[in-house]
C-alpha cells in the first residue's frame, strides 16, 4: 500500500509537500490508520502527529484521511483505503505547525466563548444538584464530544469566518449547557449567540454530523439553539 503524508517542517521546508511511503499490510487482519503512522514513524522518526489514548477518547489524532476528517486511532484501513492508497493530511482550515499537527488556538478560542461550564447562581445544596432521569436524558448526544475538531474543521462556514462563526463543536457544547436543567444562565448564553455569525452562519450542510467520530449530531444541536433563540427573541 502507498501512504502519502503531508509533510511540512518549518525549519527546513519553504512550503508543504506530500511524501510517499510504502507500507506492507499484514494479511488476515485490519489495522487502524494510527498503527500505520506508528510503524512508519519507526522508519522515519521525523513524521510528526499528535496521539495519546489510541482508543478514540482523547481526540488528539484528528486528521484528514483520504479526504475525510476522522480519528486515526479508530479509522480502520479497510474502511478508507481505495486503490491501495492512503492519503493523510492535517485537519483543514487551521494553521499547520508541523506535518499533521495543527494549531488549535482558534478552535479553543471559540470553545471558550460559549462558557463551557455549568453556571448556577443559586446557593449550593448540601450534597449535589440533582436531575430527574428525563432531565439527564436531554444531555445524551451532547456531553460525549471529545473536542477532536473533526467537525469544526470540516465546516466551510468555519473555514471562511473562523473568528466569528463558533463552529459545530463549540455550538454542541453551548447547547449541552442550554439543555442542562441545573444551568441558570440561559438568558445570558442566548444573548451572546444572537448575532449574524455565531450561530446563524451555519448553512445546515451537515458535514459536522457526517464526520463526527463519536456519531454525534451538532447540526441538530444548532437547530435547537435556533429554536431557543426564536423563543427567546420573540
Amino acid at each position: 500500500m502507498q501512504v502519502s503524508i503531508y509533510r511540512y517542517i518549518p525549519e527546513t521546508d519553504s512550503q508543504p509537500r506530500m511524501q510517499d511511503y510504502e507500507f506492507e499490510r499484514p494479511a488476515g487482519r485490519d489495522l487502524m490508520v494510527l498503527d500505520v503512522l506508528e510503524q512508519l514513524k519507526i522508519k522515519d522518526p521525523s513524521i510528526t502527529y499528535r496521539r495519546s489514548c489510541r482508543e478514540g477518547v482523547c481526540g488528539s489524532d484528528g486528521m484528514n484521511i483520504n479526504g475525510r476528517n476522522g480519528l486515526a486511532c479508530k479509522t480502520p484501513l479497510g474502511a478508507v483505503v481505495k486503490n491501495n492508497r492512503l492519503v493523510l493530511r492535517p485537519l483543514p482550515g487551521l494553521p499547520v505547525i508541523r506535518d499533521l499537527v495543527v494549531d488549535m488556538t482558534q478552535f479553543y478560542k471559540q470553545f471558550e466563548r460559549v462558557d463551557p461550564f455549568l453556571i448556577n447562581d443559586e446557593p449550593p445544596p448540601e450534597k449535589e444538584r440533582l436531575q430527574s432521569i428525563e432531565e439527564r436524558e436531554k444531555l445524551e448526544g451532547l456531553y460525549e464530544c471529545i473536542l477532536c475538531a473533526c467537525c469544526t474543521t470540516s465546516c466551510p462556514s468555519f473555514w471562511w469566518n473562523p473568528e466569528k462563526f463558533l463552529g459545530p463543536a463549540a455550538l454542541l457544547h453551548s447547547y449541552r449547557f442550554l439543555a442542562d436543567s441545573r444551568d441558570t444562565a440561559k438568558e445570558e448564553r442566548l444573548s451572546q449567540l444572537d448575532d449574524p455569525f455565531s450561530v446563524f452562519r451555519c448553512r445546515t450542510i451537515m458535514n459536522c454530523a457526517n464526520v463526527c467520530p463519536k456519531d454525534l449530531n451538532p447540526t441538530r444541536a444548532i437547530g435547537k439553539i435556533r429554536t431557543l433563540l426564536v423563543k427567546h427573541g420573540t
Binding site: 469566518n161 473568528e163 466569528k164 449567540l193 444572537d194 448575532d195 449574524p196 455569525f197 455565531s198 450561530v199 446563524f200 435556533r226 433563540l229 426564536v230 427573541g233 420573540t234
Partner: peptide
C-alpha cells in the same frame, strides 16, 4: 475580518426570520 455594519438588521435572529 468581516463586520456586521452592512448586515440587514445587525441581528442574526431577525435576518434568519426575515
Amino acid at each position: 475580518m468581516v463586520v456586521n455594519v452592512s448586515n440587514f438588521s445587525r441581528n442574526g435572529l431577525s435576518d434568519f426570520l426575515l
